[in-house]
């Protein structure tokens, strides 16, 4: 929910009537689906935003807390891997302002009861947004501790009513050269694609994420909607999702396509299985506001979420299915 006074809305951001009407239709059909589940949409109230351009969200607390020090918001928003905005980790925070996160709709397709397009505000309001603090472990061996705001992806999946034949879920990110001038400049092929096995997607940890630090996501963090999968390396948590596809077979994923040896489909955080080029046994924890010396901490199996996720991989050789 982005509320601005009429004077500072650029005309380019005003939704054309046809899009708005489509929104209304989607919203009705989506809500009709919810009605059957007996859930009530809660509207997050909008308060004063702390970070310019971001909106404070109304959130509810959750049991997903960590005793570890939280990474300062400024660091989480200035150090991002988002190749659509440049390959340097400082690039996205400099470049992502060219992206528009409204209007926004997510197209749901594939093996579902009813393919549909759902407006972002409908999605945000579907379930209460929880405060969940997760470890975020990048495959490059650094990590942060970030409070995210969202609700379990499973809630969304249930509402979409996938067919029994849907074994995987694929996420497609925005790829719009007009909004992302550097799109395609790096060696990765747009659009960014990620995927999860259905049980992974349904795991209570997997979060459909709209905010962090109690505010809407910054563009460079993957606004307006992303998925956070905390027991996997960061690239498995796709940003700026425009399409969610329910599929039968393991979907192609961007990094796996690029270098299958180095980036497996699963890419679960695993200190015992090194990346082709560097050790994954330790990570630089980026949590201090102003220290030159990052703490190096041991990386935990499944990023510390072993109890919640290891059952899904029982009997699987994690060295083969890296």
């Amino acid at each position: 929910m982005l509320i601005r006074s009429s004077s500072n809305i650029p005309s380019s951001e005003i939704t054309p009537k046809s899009t708005y009407d489509a929104y209304r239709r989607d919203r009705r059909s989506f809500l009709a689906g919810l009605g059957a589940m007996g859930a009530a949409a809660m509207l997050p109230a909008v308060a004063h935003a702390d970070t310019p351009g971001l909106t404070r969200l109304k959130t509810v607390s959750s049991n997903y807390k960590l005793s570890e020090t939280t990474t300062p918001e400024s660091k989480a928003q200035s150090y991002n891997n988002y190749y659509e905005f440049g390959t340097d980790k400082g690039d996205p925070s400099r470049n992502a302002h060219t992206m528009h996160v409204r209007p926004w709709a997510v197209q749901v397709e594939g093996l579902v009861a009813k393919p549909q397009t759902i407006g972002i505000d409908t999605l945000i309001n579907y379930r209460p947004l929880e405060d969940r603090t997760y470890r975020f472990r990048c495959v490059e061996a650094w990590s942060m501790v970030i409070p995210w705001n969202g609700y379990p992806l499973s809630e969304f999946i249930k509402a979409m009513n996938p067919l029994p034949s849907a074994k995987y879920i694929q996420f497609i990110s925005l790829a719009d050269k007009a909004q992302m001038p550097l799109l395609g400049e790096s060696g990765i092929n747009p659009p960014y694609s990620e995927g999860l096995r259905m049980d992974e997607a349904m795991n209570p940890l997997t979060l459909l994420t709209f905010g962090s630090y109690g505010e809407t996501l910054a563009n460079q963090q993957g606004a307006p909607i992303r998925v956070i999968v905390p027991w996997k390396y960061g690239f498995k948590s796709p940003k700026a999702i425009v399409k969610i596809r329910f599929v039968k077979d393991m979907p192609p994923t961007t990094w796996n396509d690029l270098d299958a040896q180095e980036y497996g489909f699963y890419s679960n955080v695993n200190p015992n299985y090194d990346n082709a080029r560097w050790s994954q046994a330790h990570e630089r924890r980026l949590d201090s506001a102003s220290s030159l010396f990052a703490k190096t901490v041991p990386t935990l199996m499944f990023n510390g979420y072993q109890d919640q996720v290891q059952g899904m991989y029982a009997g699987m050789d994690l060295r083969k299915n890296y």
């Binding site: 400024s74 660091k75 200035s78 150090y79 980790k89 400082g90 650094w142 630089r284 980026l286 201090s288 506001a289 102003s290 220290s291 030159l292 010396f293 990052a294």
Partner: peptide, 15 residues
């Protein structure tokens, strides 16, 4: 960068 604190304020000074 060090004296002004800008180095420590980098997200990942070591990197």
């Amino acid at each position: 960068l060090y004296r002004s604190g800008m180095l420590a304020n980098q997200a990942d000074p070591v990197n």
